[in-house]
Design a binder for these strands. Structure first.
Lengths: 237, 237
DNA sequence: TGGTGTGAATACTTTCACAGCC
DNA sequence: GGCTGTGAAAGTATTCACACCA
């Protein structure tokens, strides 16, 4: 199974595992079973074991997984054991919020270039870098060897920006614009679209009982059971 | 097939269809085939036809779909032909950005209540509404009969906020906090997590050719083919 | 003729259940 | 005894391909 193509849906879950494992480490867990991890995540033990099995045999029978070791393995698989430079395009309200977001750095992402269309924004200094005009995208991306772009421009400008990013060498795009981007197959795109998410949730908000949702439709973890007995896994605190 | 439970994955695609159809309408399209719509969306004609068939027979053979009529059908299915009040919890950087986002209103969502923990924020007036303390969540949600909540608080506070929202009667949550929420099955949750998205994309950013991505792994639409011949569908402009 | 709606086939994903190992 | 890793089964989702219709 090793080396066979790993389904993208599995890849998307790994960051959630990683996030949870890091939290568990902060809480002092040394070891965790797939069942316990599944509880936290609202997933299932079998799914977690299957997902991890694509990459290796990280567990120990009768014992579970070492939290610290599994974190290292996931970081390695996802290539998170290095720093990634990111280009941000768009410096309107949304772009500015992204530029000032403090969550990138602790996760190994650094906004290394910012591009704006508005001449008032160009030249501003943000986090020590100068905001550049969008005409510079290809050149700067190539010079800084950037592989990841974030698009925070209006929908009608997004495809053109994507084209430039790709032309410069970007192979991963986080797209905040409400439009489907057309990119070559070697480029990965993930969409962030709060409006679509709200619009799909309203489907379930009927007063009458239909569509019945009694079994849930699998969006998050079932309501909290008991707190997991953690003692045996924790280092004495 | 009508009335059988519709898969959630289908429901999640409907807003994307709607968004594209509205754009086509703006451009003057009167009619569209599943094949043409699929091109725009980077989907397939068969998938679009199957998805729509869960809700009715909206097309006409040899002709396609009426853009205006299909928009109305989708709005009806998703219950977007009304205004939805939304509660926003959290008024830090992210919460403020959400509160000032101009994209909700034109899509039928209105932030009708804002809750903050920080006493400096409580009492401020934003878009004509007063920022309230988080202790008021249940009462206000119930009084305003709000069904949708947006969580924009730190991860460690998110579960408690979710509990209060649900206690007040919320049945749909858009969660910006990087943590899996535990909610009862009648509540829908959608996650917005840019960090996880970046962290999953780095998997594909290997310099060596592995994991081979030559076939793509289905994240967006294949690179633009020809522009669709639109003339026959358009009203003369 | 051109394009829908949908059974049937295929492909993908999750879950079961258990041999095997610590 | 307890828990992993994984074949095999079950469950979902997508795609094919064509009868049918305007």
């Amino acid at each position: 199974m090793r080396n066979a193509a790993v389904p993208d849906i599995v890849i998307r879950r790994l960051p959630l595992y990683l996030r949870t494992l890091r939290q568990l480490r902060r809480e002092g867990w040394q070891t965790i079973s797939s069942e316990e991890l599944a509880q936290q995540l609202g997933s299932t033990a079998a799914q977690i074991r299957r997902d991890l099995s694509y990459f290796g045999r990280f567990g120990k029978q009768g014992y579970g997984y070492s939290v610290a070791a599994l974190i290292r393995e996931l970081e390695s698989v996802l290539q998170l054991d290095r720093l990634w430079n990111v280009a941000l395009v768009g410096y309107g309200k949304l772009g500015q919020a992204i530029a000032h977001y403090r969550g990138f750095a602790p996760n190994g992402f650094r906004i290394a270039a910012i591009f704006a269309k508005n001449p008032e924004h160009v030249g501003q200094i943000v986090n020590g870098i100068v905001v550049l005009p969008e005409t510079e995208i290809e050149r700067v991306i190539r010079e800084l060897d950037i592989r990841i772009g974030i698009i925070a421009v209006p929908a009608e400008a997004a495809q053109e920006v994507a084209n430039r990013l790709v032309a410069g060498g970007v192979r991963a795009i986080l797209n905040y614009a409400p439009v489907m981007l057309h990119v070559p197959p070697e480029v990965t795109v993930r969409e962030i679209d709060p409006i679509s998410m709200l619009q799909s949730m309203t489907y379930y908000l009927r007063e009458d009982g239909y569509p019945s949702q009694e079994n849930g439709h699998a969006t998050t973890v079932p309501h909290l059971k008991a707190t997991i007995a953690a003692e045996k896994h924790q280092v004495p605190s």
